[in-house]
């Protein structure tokens, strides 16, 4: 097992997803870190175009796994082929994006190939402790530095946005078919279809201003000040996931990885701690105001203005001030 990185690329509509290019950028950086080279594996059915797209990056090789059994994603088929690919190629490190698809199968792959698993890395560096990865814990309130504690292979998934797709170095890689035994590869799901969640959506992506509320609001009956503030600002109401899960607002108000992505001029986050699942949906906002009782809440790191205190006191005070300012 040499110092080699294998990047698992995620495809959509026959092309590379943005997260696949981010994973390539991360794989190249990790290869530099360990003094090796990165290759990529492209898997699916009729995915030669995606393989050619991957070959335009600075990679040692693009390995193509093109087979009918991979036409639809299932963890059984993906783990089956990738386990064989890893056995043949012997990479020391495997990198994938921390997407909802990867998180579904990469842990199982780590068990199948008996590798250390580092989920949701945001950065890594070499040190006297070997490769040290940073990853969020406690919903992003803290970061842990972790490392593989035994010799052997490491599987890493990288958080969306932690590495930039545009940082992936260009090159000209050779595309090669990887010979594996597809007869032992089996889907473990019978795919029935896809559905849009929630039907008719309120489109928050065009909103100029959003008042977003989080778990800290404390209940469906405690939202009037937030609604008053939204009305005074001419803003839409949005929310982080716990508010939706608790049934305090309908699902079409959810902002984040499983909800809507927004980019307003003004984003007031009240009682939202700033977990990554929420942040990916609002980091395009121009001016973020964070209101939270915990001064260490990660939301303050990306806010322009921070107000530490009880939102049930601050929001009514803000409503008054905004109304007065608008009346000027």
């Amino acid at each position: 097992m040499g110092a080699q990185v294998l990047v698992i690329t995620q495809l959509r509509a026959g092309g590379l997803e943005r997260v696949a290019r981010e994973a390539i950028a991360a794989g190249q950086a990790l290869a530099t870190c360990i003094g090796g080279r990165a290759s990529a594996v492209v898997l699916g059915c009729d995915v030669q175009a995606a393989a050619r797209a991957a070959a335009r990056f600075d990679l040692d090789r693009v390995w193509l796994l093109d087979h009918a059994s991979l036409a639809a994603y299932t963890p059984g088929a993906y783990v089956g082929v990738l386990q064989q690919a890893i056995t043949v190629l012997q990479p020391s490190h495997v990198v994938a994006s921390h997407s909802y698809q990867s998180v579904d199968f990469v842990p199982r792959l780590s068990q199948a190939v008996d590798a250390a698993l580092v989920p949701e890395a945001v950065s890594f560096e070499t040190s006297e402790d070997g490769v040290v990865y940073r990853r969020p814990i406690m919903g992003g309130k803290l970061q842990a530095r972790v490392r593989a504690r035994t010799a052997g292979r490491t599987l890493v998934t990288v958080q969306s946005g932690a590495f930039q797709a545009t940082d992936a170095a260009a090159g000209n890689a050779r595309v090669e078919n990887l010979e594996i035994d597809f007869s032992t590869v089996h889907a473990d799901r019978e795919i029935l279809g896809v559905e849009q969640v929630g039907g008719d959506q309120i489109d928050l992506s065009k909103a100029e201003a959003i008042v977003a509320i989080g778990r800290g609001v404390g209940g469906a009956d405690k939202m009037q000040p937030a609604k008053d503030l939204a009305a005074a600002l001419g803003a839409e109401i949005g929310a982080s996931r716990p508010v939706i899960d608790n049934g305090w607002l309908p699902r079409d108000r959810q902002i984040g990885s499983s909800g809507q992505t927004v980019a307003p001029k003004l984003y007031i986050a009240a009682g939202i701690s700033g977990a990554i699942q929420h942040v990916v949906g609002m980091k395009g906002a121009q001016c973020v105001v964070a209101i939270n009782k915990d001064p260490n809440a990660p939301i303050f790191a990306l806010a322009r203005y921070g107000l530490v205190g009880d939102l049930h006191e601050i929001l009514p005070a803000l409503v008054e001030q905004v109304r007065a300012a608008k009346a000027d």
């Binding site: 803290l142 921070g306 107000l307």
Partner: peptide
């Protein structure tokens, strides 16, 4: 297979004006 070396409050972004 994985061990935590240490944990800390993340230092990301410039932070808000409080």
């Amino acid at each position: 297979r994985v061990e935590i070396l240490d944990v800390a409050v993340p230092t990301s972004g410039d932070g808000a004006e409080m």
